[in-house]
Design a protein around this nucleic acid. Structure first.
Lengths: 208, 208
DNA sequence: GCCAAAATTAAACAACCGTTTAATTTAAAC
DNA sequence: GTTTAAATTAAACGGTTGTTTAATTTTGGC
């Protein structure tokens, strides 16, 4: 898979990310993208081949780098709980920075699965799970984490909590009285992140 | 809001649910629905007015009843932890029974928000949160749950974990070696449900 | 300045979209 | 059996979709 994207291609991907996040993959037309990106409709086909391939490029472009950061985190000299907390922060930061990739990752990939899910993206997920596994097993070896935790179900809780919060943004803006975009993002970075960290910590030390 | 749906309308809703869950709202055409349901394309407009209104009817049709069950649960004579566990079971059962409503609730409603999110569905969510709040506060009053839990963030963890697991079905089928549909559904009903129950319980008794 | 490759364009393509119309069939009431 | 309303149909509507074509412009090496 080539990674040599020129400036124009990246510009198209950025616009596509915003619009896909806003209106969904099927809800966004190539003409929508080309209008916002101020390019000709044909450019998407010219650069990416098709709309589906554009999505694939976008996902690979936006998820590259996370793997390396996770591997770096593993080798850091930190307490087990600190490592888990940093991992959670890393995930949330990563998802929160990119304008709306979380919605794409979460939804579009599971309906367009024939093309995308089974290819390279499955490998990224497996690699990330492997990193988490290493961190948890390290904590277990040190006798800090309980032994019978189902590691595969930790990511659903971490990411699922985050996704569900973002997916129901209008609802939580309302009930938590988060009036500005800044207040909302701030809540995610502080309270929500802390909630997820506490949840995972509680689960890791919990004895039945 | 009228609830008097005839058999034909319900039949259309069932087909729409399956297809929306499979291919998304925008990815499903009225012609797709009419083909599977073996009706004329005009029938959707005739019965529901428009495609958007069909979605609205579907959501209301499928979410009705949960509220009553939650209220019943509150008044049952159970230990606080048992009540929380039953609530989690109730949510998962409810989502698991309906073929794919979770995807619609989770995703479509947040992009079509102008029409749906702000109307009756926000009220359903608020009502369900209120029920959860009553259960948690009862447990706190009895001194079983810790006091500083953010109740609003419990639902994201409960539902988010479930949603994330379902959204990444191909991935979890693979790594958990769940080869048949039955094995997968069984895992959801036993292991995943237990994981969520344990997570919430751990969070509710966790002391910082 | 010339030329080949790359980038960009407007236009056209056929296919599909949600919705409406107007005609026909079915059902029920009297 | 006639009447009236509801249900169902095929066809057409104007618009949008993703993609391709063929022509034009821009670019960079010589």
């Amino acid at each position: 898979m080539k990674n040599d994207l020129n400036d124009k291609q990246i510009q198209i991907l950025e616009v596509a990310e915003t619009l896909f996040a806003e209106k969904g993959f099927d809800g966004t037309s190539i003409r929508d993208i080309s209008k916002v990106a101020k390019i000709n409709v044909a450019m998407v086909s010219y650069y990416f081949g098709s709309k589906e391939k554009l999505l694939e490029s976008l996902v690979l472009f936006k998820t590259s780098g996370l793997k390396e950061r996770l591997v770096n985190l593993i080798e850091e000299n930190l307490e087990p709980f600190e490592k888990v907390n940093k991992l959670i922060e890393l995930y949330i930061n990563r998802l929160n920075c990119n304008r709306g990739i979380y919605r794409i990752l979460h939804f579009e990939l599971s309906s367009k699965k024939k093309v995308l899910e089974l290819e390279s993206f499955l490998e990224i997920k497996k690699s990330n799970l492997k990193s988490l596994e290493l961190i948890i097993k390290e904590g277990q070896a040190k006798g800090v984490f309980r032994k019978d935790v189902i590691i595969e179900l930790l990511t659903p809780t971490i990411l699922g909590t985050y996704f569900h919060f973002q997916m129901n943004k209008p609802f939580f803006e309302d009930i938590l009285n988060l009036k500005t975009e800044e207040a909302y993002n701030n809540y995610v970075k502080t309270d929500l992140t802390k909630h997820i960290q506490q949840t995972i910590k509680a689960l890791l030390i919990y004895e039945n």
